[in-house]
Every structure is written in C-alpha cells, then in structure tokens.
Design a protein around this nucleic acid. Structure first.
Lengths: 333, 333
DNA sequence: TTGAAAGCGCTAACAT
DNA sequence: ATGTTAGCGCTTTCAA
C-alpha cells in the first residue's frame, strides 16, 4: 500500500540515492531538473518516506517517551501540553504511557522506551525506583525527571516545583495572621510532594516559634473525600484548629465542604490554603487560596533540557527547582 | 550503546536466526540447551531488541496514533485513558498529538502518522476536514473516528455519543416541569456537538408543542465566561426564561454564577441542566444536573473497533452511537 | 551530478 | 536443530 524509495527511484529513472538527496533537501548533488522531476513523481505517487527506516538508518527517531501516572488526573494534562508544545517546536513527537504510579509498570515502560528507540524519556511520577533508575543508565537513554529529586542523580536533568518553600510560605501566611493551631492536611505520606511540604510546614512553625501538634498533621490521599472525612472526624473529636494548610486543592475543597456542613464559615472562622492551583480552585466557591506551581512551564522546561542534552547543546543548568507562589483568593482573609 | 542481534549471536556462537527464534519464543527449531544459553547471554548483555527493526521487517509497529484537540481540556484525558487502557490489553502503544482543532495541523498530523507507519489512528476532534479525510483513504491507514459522524464515510469505524438524544431528553425534562421559555446555551456553532444538540432541542420543543423563541438560542464558546456573560446580558435586556439547558457544563456553571450574582436562586427560580458530566459538575455547588456521555467507554470502544479492523477480526458493528443519560443533581427540581 | 553498494537491526523462507 | 541469505526502506560513502 505504501511505496518505497525504490519505487520512486525506478519510476523517476534515477537511483535511490538521488531520491534520498531530493527528499532531504540536500542542496548540492542534484541538478534542479532532476530534482523537479523526482519531486513531481513523489507528489504524484503520494509517496511518504518511512520514518521507521530513517530512524534505523540515522539512529534516532525524533520521538520522546513520556511517562506520567495518569492522564486523566489533575494537572498532568497541562504538563503534557507543556511538553508537546515544546517538542513541536523542535520537530519531535511524543509517545505516552500511564504508569498509575506502579513501579513495576513504570519499569516495563522505561524498558519499552529503549525497545522503541525513542530519543529520550521524560519521567514524571511520584514513585521512587531508585535502584532501577540506576540500572537504567546502562542503556544510555537520555532521561529527564519531573517532580522527583530523590533519584535525580540517575538522570540527565531534572526539574521540580518547590514544594517545601511553597508550604513554608503557606504556613507562614497563616502564622502571620495570628494562627497558632494550623491543621496540616496532605496526600500519600510516602510520595515526594508530601515529604517536602511537611518539611516546609515544620520549618515555618519553627521559625514562627510555635511547636507543632502532631495530632494536627494528617496525610492520606489526594482526594476531596479524604479532606472531607478528616475534618469531620477532627471536628467530632473536638480537636481545635483555626486554619488549614493543605498539600492539595482537592483535599482543601473537601475540608471546606466539611466545615460548611457544620456551619463553620470560611475564611471568617477558619482560613484555608490549598496547593497546586488546579483549574477547579478558581471555579469553586469560595474561590480557593492556594499555592501555584507552574506545571506547564515546568514540563516544557523539562522537555527543553532533555532535547538539549539529546542534541548535545550547551546546557548550563541541569537541575532546577522552580519557586511556588501564593495565590490569595477567598478562603483566606 | 545498544547491542544488536548479531552481537548476541556472535557472543553465543549461533546465528542471528537462532537468536531471533529464541527471543520470539518460537517453540520449535531451538534446542532447550541453546535456548538457555542465548537467553542467558541476552540477559547478561542487557540486550533489548529494536522495535524499529521489527516494525520494518514485520510491516507493523504496534503503535496507534491518537489525535485530540487538546489534552489539557475537559474530558479528553478520560478518553485517552480509555484508549490507552484498551491498547495495553492488546500490546499496543500510543503516539499522541494535539490538533488544537486546527484543520491544517490535523492534516499534517494525519500524514505524520503514515510517515511513522503507525498501525492505525484514532481521530477525535470536532473539526471536519471531509475532503482531506477522503484523500487520506488512499494511504490505506486504518482510521477510527470519535465524536464525528459527518465524515464517518471515510473511516473504518466510528463512534459518537448521542448529542441529539441527550439534549432532547434534557429539554424534555424541562418541558415536563412546566417550563415554556427554555434558554438554550451552547458552544461553538460550527462544531459537531452543538449542531446535533440544537436539533435535539428543537425536536423536544416541537414534540412538546412549544414554539422556540430564536432569541433564546445562543451559541458561542465552551467556557464559563461565555455562560456568565450571556446570562447577564439577557437578564439586563429583560429577556424572560425560567430554565436553561446548556450544551456544556462549563457554560452552565457560568450561567449559574451569573444568576446567583443577581440573587436568582437555582433551582427554585430557574432550573439548569449542563452537558458532559465533567468531574467538576459534581464538585461545584450546587451540584450540577447534567447529561452524561460515557467518554471513557466511548474511547475504549473506539480503540477496540480499530484494533479489530487492524487485526482482521470479526467486526459486526463499525458505526455506533451510544446513548446519553440524564444525571439529576441539585440544579433541577 | 549521479549511481552502486554497504549498512542499520531485524524476520523468514529455504537449506542443511 | 541450526545456519544462510534475501529483504524491509532508508542513508551515506565512495567511485565514476
């Protein structure tokens, strides 16, 4: 169904070398008359050169593999967009994998990337897998990491939003508003984000001279339900707190729903800060105050660094952590 | 950096044919002793066979190309997940492209799919491009369409959520609640969805014996802002309506925000129905009543039909339209 | 300016 | 059971 270069060559009465030269716009080595002719024939035959064959001959595919936990979740789509947009400017395409944060799947997908001879991979996932990443280096596959610093030693470049500083700022804001009993609510305890954020929380409290109440530090899942349930049970226990800093907008929204169900006003009675600045945070009412990490930019920056290392360009910085910024809306005073 | 089959063969003291047989688990033709040995060597060398080379030799790549308007938008992520999950069960991977609903980009991407010799493509986008799709057939690329019936003649299979029936049901519900003046609010007029939905709206009104007021039929964009602006200006004009059926949850949410800003209660004063059942519709307060199209299932079904045609399996149905269902929550009585 | 031919990493038909 | 070899669709060196 698909013509090959030799079909074109035969029909044009030239060699495949000449056809190759023509389709790759080699300036010299082809008279303009034969170039015209070959071009016309390619057009007429609807000839499309096989990238597979080119990839194998040139030893690069112009394809980048991307592994994320789950496309249908939160801000990954924005990141994908950031990656794809940059890739387009450089003539690369994207192969996409969902790992579901499963280390075994992630491992298989990483290997599948070398099987497919992609030019590099962007790994964006909260699961560690340090041992395997180390081993992965032996395949010589260019690797960029997003959102994970723990194993960045085994990658060519990495970038991460500053969770620690973001949460530090969030908690500091609450302290500056006079709060002493600040509830900390975050997702999965083992994940990278929560680890750094909790660190920021503790730091802020310490710098503010307040001793953290360990009973006010809760981690569970990144879901509305979790925030809702936790706040309700805390309320039932009679646990006191006057502010909430959350490591997730979803959790914060769950918390607000719980508070309201008990007639507690936000922000008058309790102030709430989310984290991530997901789209929903601006649509929800009251509009959620939150901490923003520039997902799109982070991801496209990762793509940029990766392509730079692939194409052996100057790459002065290969580890970046980009600052989070506070977005104050209606759930804080 | 990557070993080839001949490296392995040499090191194992066998021919490449034998190595090939081993790695493809050909049961016959290899003694278990040499199989063991070759396997051990492959392991030891960390050998990964090139899928590129396999693809070119076997004339199929096990890769499916997917074109959507924009990953970072609405329900496309869910669809991608539906596609990817099915693809995984069949051993295929996915190449992803964002078309931004630009016919020119879509065209280039479609061609790029043949350049990359993917085994098939799933096109999911509201832009027509009928002329080109027809031409595209000449490349013999298996094609599945999602959400577009207009050009389904030029595809191997297609699937679409029933917009017309969904909106018919939505408007009918309002009529059954006694409403006569029902505002119709939808996105881009030219897109496939709005065309069918408007048809459903008109049908419902006709069947209900009410003559539509053309001034109550508004189309613009799929955004919160649009819904907000339209309702506000209608209110300012003093235009009367007692219910809103929208072709988009986002637009419906914008409408509700506008109503509330004027002290109009939902659903007591005005009832509102959205469309699409995006995640947000359940989180927003009041929870949005809406029409649900099963995006995930539609997409995975599309993948299934495509793979079936690729693998020459029995495929009794190649055109499906799946029913939309009403989800009644808090913005309707 | 053009072509012949080897090479890229695999598979498969045909021999042995 | 195993090897030889042609072939898949390109690129590129070398020669003409």
């Amino acid at each position: 169904m698909n013509y090959s270069i030799s079909d074109v060559a035969r029909r044009a009465g030239v060699s495949t070398a000449t056809v190759s030269r023509v389709m790759n716009n080699k300036t010299n080595g082809v008279s303009s008359s034969t170039r015209e002719r070959v071009l016309a024939i390619m057009e007429e035959m609807n000839y499309r050169p096989s990238q597979l064959a080119r990839s194998i001959a040139l030893n690069h595919s112009n394809i980048i593999g991307v592994i994320i936990p789950d496309v249908s979740n939160l801000f990954y789509p924005q990141m994908l967009r950031g990656i794809d947009d940059y890739l387009n400017t450089r003539g690369y395409s994207m192969m996409l994998f969902n790992s579901d944060s499963d280390p075994e799947r992630e491992k298989k997908q990483l290997l599948s990337m070398v099987d497919n001879r992609v030019d590099g991979v962007i790994l964006c996932s909260g699961v560690s897998n340090e041992a395997f990443l180390k081993e992965y280096r032996t395949y010589g596959m260019p690797l960029a990491l997003i959102g994970r610093t723990f194993d960045s030693a085994y990658a060519d470049c990495s970038i991460i939003g500053d969770n620690e500083q973001g949460m530090y700022d969030s908690a500091s804001l609450m302290l500056s508003h006079g709060h002493k009993r600040i509830l900390y609510l975050d997702g999965t305890a083992g994940a990278a984000g929560p680890i750094y954020r909790l660190r920021g929380y503790r730091h802020a409290l310490q710098d503010g001279g307040v001793t953290p109440d360990e009973g006010l530090i809760l981690r569970g899942e990144f879901s509305i339900q979790f925030g809702y349930d936790m706040v309700l049970s805390l309320l039932d226990e009679g646990k006191e707190f006057t502010a909430i800093v959350s490591g997730s907008d979803l959790v914060a929204i769950g918390a607000i729903k719980a508070l309201r169900s008990r007639g507690i006003r936000v922000p008058e009675d309790i102030e709430v800060m989310g984290f991530d600045n997901i789209e929903l945070s601006e649509i929800f009412e009251p509009k959620l105050s939150t901490v923003s990490k520039p997902h799109y930019e982070i991801a496209s920056q990762a793509a940029k660094m990766l392509i730079s290392t692939i194409e052996n360009e100057e790459l002065p910085i290969r580890r970046m952590t980009v600052a989070s910024t506070l977005i104050l809306r209606d759930t804080t005073r």
